[in-house]
Nucleic acid binder design. Structure first.
Lengths: 354, 354
DNA sequence: CCTGTAGTATGCTATATAGCACTTTAAACT
DNA sequence: AGTTTAAAGTGCTATATAGCATACTACAGG
């Protein structure tokens, strides 16, 4: 418009328009050709094209020509993100997620990336965090499905913990069902028949499958589900505290409590200790995750060891494939988790009352 | 060297060298002048300079000239880094540092930054991580002073945990001395006279000052330092385990153990429990940090609460000032830490033997 | 003392030209 | 048919030149 606009800018605009109009779809005309067409000099066209290359709109192959850059060729940042919903209590400093984060970071570095932790899509300045990321690994929960959809639009995304309802998003999860089933087995083999279950939040597959594993354990041995022996917790230490108190309040308390995670198991242990119930003599406790303290407390917690390093390794490898634009053989991976027998589970005490 | 090197690259090299040699310190000669000096044409010099500008080495002011880019004018990335030495056991997933990291992240986001965790200066591809960072907060220990010097050269840096020997680097630390002194006081007031100390690593100010606080406690009450009542640990759970075993092996064991951090206190508790020593009836235990489990175990740990949020807030604010190129009023901040009295310290048991 | 003007320096845009290195294509030659 | 050679097309480097807009400086004039 104003005659002050430099010609090379006009040329840039023209090329951009041509791209939008699909007048140019793949290869640009030669620089000299363009110069004649547009009536500017070769060097002017050159400058314009050079700028667009710098902007990432075009790329050149010497002796071949100049081409449109596809969007996947956006500037590599060398960062991958780890998204963890901010509603997770204490977020990445929680005992479980700090392990996940640490493992992801180690794995990311060996693949040449840095790991950025974020729990909101935008930072304080309203900038989109994904602008700085080549890909994202997200801890998936139903309440963040929207967020994950947004992430997926912007950047290659791999989901862990839970699979997304959008099955096109690759996932790495734990085989929670069989892990809990194994735990149930362990307790049953020790002679426990009144086995209580302390659930986590049942809004996610993690929670549901751990419940299902418990139910399946009952089925396997022909036991009836006693609803009074199910306490609906929320994975927190406090709900472990409360859940144990509830179980103790029953006319016929359980002889073992299977907890959907370690924090609740720790809470239960604390409550039982407070009430003078001896673990494992009077009651057995079994956790899930194998957080750091699980092996440090007395008695050491029998629990399921989440395959943290495998999760990290698998997720980062998958993400790297996606970033490179390759396709995945297995979009959905479920890793098995092993029971770690320590000291909180013992033979069921002889039942006093009938 | 080879005649294939384009001249503009030669010019770029020459300018970069001149910068290193301090031949050029602020302003470059005019483009035309340079052209004559170097014997290349104006446009060639121009191309070289343009490239350097694009690289962020130089910047231009029309009608003024071309100048060296000071590092603070480099492209804002919106990232700040948290550096934690990889020799720290379990790194950012350790109970204490995960709290630090989480607090830093929250603080960073409110300031419009993302937080990148790293424990090596270069990633797997050999790229410098600081290229992607506007500033760094580093956990400082003597063994990483070299690393911190490198960081400081590249990017604004604030140090936490320990001050650096380089006093020009701003620091945010805890007043460990008075915190331990208060802890000692607490035990003394409860009647303890044989108070043992389980040190952390004494290579850093944190370790030294916690020791000094203990010594000062002895001095305050005219007690002699009994070297047998000092166990040199390394902050790990295991050293707590071992330290407690050592103290129990003494002919005259202490009535209280002051631990330089919570992980060791947890180890000590575990060992004492294992040996049938009741806490706090038979022996008192006092920790430092107030990690998450400290309040969850039974008996709940009496400890010093590290002012994590304040540390994060102070450090990020300082760093933001540095990034903006402002000067700091207080380069070195020491935050006080409060004793949190819970259940592991009680009155000293009546001494049986002399 | 202030003011205006001319000169100078700066970086910026723009064009024309010449040759290089490389690849592809097509023609020419065995 | 296969090989060789030539020509054309591509982007890349390099130089020379011309004029523009802006900001500063110095000097002359009021």
């Amino acid at each position: 418009m104003s005659k002050a606009t430099p010609k090379y800018l006009l040329v840039e605009e023209h090329i951009k328009k041509s791209i939008k109009n699909k007048t140019i779809t793949d290869k640009l005309p030669g620089e000299r050709t363009l110069a004649k067409e547009l009536g500017f000099s070769y060097m002017t066209i050159r400058k314009a094209i050079d700028n667009l290359v710098a902007q990432g709109v075009l790329y050149k192959i010497p002796t071949k020509g100049t081409f449109l850059a596809d969007r996947r060729s956006r500037q590599r940042t060398g960062n991958i993100g780890y998204f963890l919903d901010s509603s997770i209590v204490s977020g990445v400093s929680s005992p479980y997620y700090s392990l996940i984060f640490h493992a992801l970071e180690k794995e990311a570095v060996t693949h040449g990336y840095s790991l950025v932790y974020f729990s909101e899509l935008t930072n304080g300045d309203g900038e989109n965090i994904t602008d700085k990321l080549d890909g994202v690994i997200a801890s998936c929960f139903p309440r963040v499905e929207n967020t994950i959809q947004q992430l997926k639009q912007q950047v290659p995304t791999v989901v862990i913990d839970n699979a997304s309802s959008d099955k096109t998003i690759p996932s790495v999860i734990i085989d929670n069902f069989n892990a809990v089933l194994d735990s149930f087995d362990h307790l049953y083999q020790l002679g426990h028949r009144r086995i209580a279950f302390m659930t986590g939040l049942e809004d996610s597959d993690v929670g549901k499958n751990r419940c299902a594993g418990f139910q399946s354990g009952l089925n396997r041995y022909g036991l009836e589900l006693d609803e009074t022996l199910v306490y609906r917790g929320n994975y927190s230490f406090k709900s472990g505290l409360d859940g144990a108190a509830y179980f103790l309040s029953l006319a016929q308390p359980p002889t073992a409590i299977l907890c959907a995670n370690d924090s609740m198991a720790l809470g239960a242990l604390r409550r039982l200790h407070h009430e003078g119930i001896k673990v494992p003599e009077d009651m057995s406790i079994l956790g899930f995750d194998d957080i750091e303290v699980a092996s440090q407390i007395a008695p050491a917690l029998t629990t399921v060891k989440a395959p943290i390093d495998q999760i990290a390794n698998t997720a980062v490898c998958m993400l790297e494939h996606l970033i490179k634009g390759e396709t995945l053989e297995n979009r959905h991976v479920a890793l098995s988790a092993e029971l770690v027998v320590r000291q909180t589970c013992a033979e069921a005490p002889t039942i006093i009352a009938a």
